[in-house]
Structure formats: structure tokens, C-alpha cells
């Protein structure tokens, strides 16, 4: 397993390098006028004075060649200097680190809810396909996928912050403030995990080794959890990309809706303020987290699934 980890992590620099080139070229290929974007962020002026524009371009190094700009940007990024925000003229790296920390906590809590609520519900539902619990779980999981974060957020605020004032409607920092955002963000992963766990467990219960276990006299619930749940969890981890996309996309909406200073909010603010260096740094962080999350999911799968482990070791 150590070898797998090392091999996986060794692809990280290559992926990041490719992504960094793409992220660097993106606004340039799209023909964004960076100087005007910067000036728009500082002063509300439609047509910038050419002398001012030239000075800003020189100040940002935009008068050099693309290759030089890219290498400078990359070199600085490698030393932890992600540049200065066009909008606020403050260093990006500390802001990005703080935002990343907030989002990781938010996403981890939502994933925890999905694992603790979604998987057991799906496994239990699979015990009697077509039964009452199965219908309720399936119905709720369809609803969970159909109700988006931007609908769930105001609904939860109306119910649990206005009608019954249990939790604060906005903000971040106290455990109470985390409840509504985490519930909103968890709806999709819970629904997805329940559906997957149900399908995997139904499938698992029909396999020969389960029949053998039954014939050996292993009790029903022990069987369900030992054999079924294990397979269910590997099915869930195999679709980690989908969970990641759901969490990240959801995090943007949830952080905007609840006023949480996370990575999604940072990206959103960067776009609305036309703050290109901030957006580029944020996207780099997203790619890095995506690759790391993929590695983590793969390791989890190897730890849980003996078949996959055997394939790797051969």
C-alpha cells in the first residue's frame, strides 16, 4: 500500500503542472483585457487612460512574453507566493489557506453525515427490497438529489432559523452556525450514498459467498453488516469523483448562501470582482484538492476491498 501511495502522489506534480499551464492560459486565450479588469476592480472607469494602463501593465509584468509571465507566476507559486489580489491588493496565499481550511471542514462534516446516515440507511433498505423502509429510503434519496442546495438553504433557514429559531441563519465559526450549511451540503451525498449502498448491498446479498455464509449459520444482521456493508462502502469510494464534484459545486452555493468564507466563496468573489490572480490561485487549489481526494478514495478502497488489493499487488 505504501508503494501505491507513493506512485499516486508522484503523479501530483505532473497533474498540477498541466493544470497550472491551463489555468494560466485560460484568461489569455479568452482574450480578457487584464489591465482593464484590474482598473475596473479599483476605479469605476469605462475607458482607462492609456498612460495609466501602460503603467499598470508594466507593474504587473504584463508587457513581457507569455512564457516569461508563466514561469514567473509558477516560480512564485512554488515558493508559496501566489501573488496579490487585483481587487484588495493584499497577498493571496494567506487568504487562500484560510478559505481552504474552512471548506475542508465543511466538506468533511458533510461527508461524515453521508457516511453515518446514508450508508446505513441504504444497507438497511437493501435487506428487504420493495419493503416499507426501502420505499421510504429510495423516495427520500430521489428527493435528496432533486432538491438543490440553493433551494434547501433558504428552506432550512425558514424552518430552523425563522419558524423555530434553533440555529443562526448565517455566519461561520461556532458549531451552531455550522449546522444548517452542513445539512444543506450533506443532502446530495447522503442521497447518493444511500442509493449506492442499497444497490451494492442488494447485489452483494445475491452472491455465492453470502449463500455460503448463510449456510454456515451466520446470523442475518451480522451478515448484512460484515459482508454487505463492506462491499457497499467500496462501491461508494469508487464513485468518489462524483461525491467530490457534488461537494465542491455545492460548497460554492452553500458558502454564498450562508456567508461562509470558504474556497467556493473565494472563487465566486474572484469572478464577480474580475480578480484573475485570486481565481487562478483558487482553481489551482481546487485541482490539488481533487487529486488528493482521488488518492485518498483509492487508498480507502484498497483498505476495504481485498479483490482490488490483490489486483494491485500482482
Amino acid at each position: 500500500m505504501g508503494g501505491t501511495l507513493a506512485r499516486r502522489l508522484s503523479t501530483l506534480p505532473a497533474v498540477l503542472l498541466g493544470a497550472s499551464l491551463l489555468i494560466f492560459l485560460l484568461p489569455r486565450l479568452a482574450g480578457v483585457d487584464t489591465v482593464r479588469a484590474v482598473l475596473r476592480g479599483r476605479v469605476a472607469e469605462a475607458e482607462p487612460d492609456p498612460a495609466v494602463a501602460a503603467r499598470v501593465a508594466a507593474e504587473l509584468g504584463l508587457d513581457r512574453s507569455w512564457a516569461e509571465q508563466y514561469l514567473r507566476w509558477l516560480g512564485h507559486a512554488l515558493t508559496g507566493d501566489l501573488g496579490v489580489s487585483y481587487a484588495t491588493r493584499t497577498a493571496i496565499a494567506p487568504q487562500l489557506a484560510a478559505a481552504l481550511g474552512v471548506s475542508v471542514v465543511l466538506a468533511a462534516l458533510a461527508l461524515l453525515v453521508a457516511a453515518v446516515v446514508g450508508i446505513p440507511l441504504g444497507v438497511r433498505a437493501a435487506r428487504r427490497p420493495g419493503g416499507v423502509l426501502d420505499r421510504v429510503v429510495t423516495g427520500c434519496s430521489v428527493l435528496g438529489v432533486a432538491v438543490p442546495e440553493f433551494v434547501l438553504a433558504p428552506l432550512l433557514v425558514l424552518l430552523l432559523a425563522v419558524a423555530v429559531p434553533l440555529f443562526p441563519a448565517t455566519g461561520w465559526g461556532t458549531p451552531a452556525q455550522a449546522v444548517l450549511p452542513v445539512l444543506t451540503l450533506a443532502a446530495f451525498p447522503v442521497a447518493l450514498a444511500a442509493q449506492l449502498a442499497r444497490a451494492e448491498t442488494v447485489d452483494a446479498l445475491s452472491r455465492p459467498h453470502v449463500a455460503v455464509a448463510l449456510a454456515k449459520g451466520v446470523g442475518g444482521s451480522q451478515l448484512l453488516w460484515r459482508h454487505g456493508a463492506r462491499l457497499a462502502l467500496t462501491g461508494v469510494t469508487a464513485l468518489s469523483g462524483m461525491f467530490f464534484a457534488g461537494l465542491l459545486g455545492g460548497a460554492v452555493v452553500v458558502e454564498v448562501a450562508f456567508g461562509i468564507p470558504g474556497l467556493g466563496r473565494l472563487l465566486y468573489d474572484a469572478v464577480t470582482a474580475q480578480d484573475l490572480p485570486m481565481l487562478q490561485a483558487g482553481l489551482l487549489a481546487v485541482v490539488a484538492v481533487a487529486v488528493l481526494a482521488g488518492v485518498a478514495a483509492e487508498l480507502l478502497q484498497l483498505a476495504l476491498d481485498p479483490v482490488a488489493r490483490a489486483e494491485v499487488e500482482v
Binding site: 464534484a245 465542491l248 469572478v271 481533487a290
Partner: peptide, 15 residues
Amino acid sequence: VAIPTVIVGLVVAAV
């Protein structure tokens, strides 16, 4: 599959 539409939308909207 790991790239959410919302992020792509933000990037497209930025340019």
C-alpha cells in the same frame, strides 16, 4: 466527472 458544473460556470463567466 470530478469537475462540478458550477466551477466550470464560474470560470466561463470570468472570461
